[in-house]
Design a protein around this nucleic acid. Sequence first.
DNA 1: AGCAAGATCGGT
DNA 2: CCGATCTTGCTG
Length: 192
Amino acid sequence: MQSFLTTKFFERSATKVAPDLLGKFLVRRLRGKKIALMITEVEAYHGFKDRASHASKGLTQRNKIMFGEAGNWYVYFIYGMYWMLNIVTGDKSMPSAVLIRGVKEFNGPGKLTKTLRINKYFNGKTANKKTGLWIEDRGVKIGNPPSRKASEGNFRFLKTKIKKGPRIGVDYAGPVWSKKQWRFYLEGASHT
DNA sequence: AGCAAGATCGGT
DNA sequence: CCGATCTTGCTG
């Protein structure tokens, strides 16, 4: 049982979408094969006032995707070497996105895109099967099963916790914004 | 046109 | 901690 995450899932605040992405699967079609990796670490970049976010500079050529449709990929190049993979969230009045930082197999947003061959091609494209890169709910839930009879479904419970902390590499944003607890990760899966 | 900075990473 | 490496956006 698996379901593909559609626009509706992403049309919410980045700070709500971000923790909900933990336990979901990033799926990439590569050379005819599907690679599915469970998301374990994310960060929310929320609104034009967030000084850690590209959107705080106002609309520019690079960040315009953040001002667009939820459920699109926002992919940008950084440090001369790495591609960062984000999914756009919220409605258009609130430019925002969630950075996918880590999956179960390994941590680090730059390693993720390198491994899955994700680059500029995906920027502005919708996360779906046609694009070759999308997100699925495969029935994983975080935490303990509620009770034997309540857990009727095809759910698999991951006995771990969602933790949060400050976002990585955004000291330039100043004390207020760099300290926002907008990084979410599964316990034991932190990059740092 | 020039320049400084950057949502990183791996090696000292 | 430091260098690699290059696009972006700001300044002039």
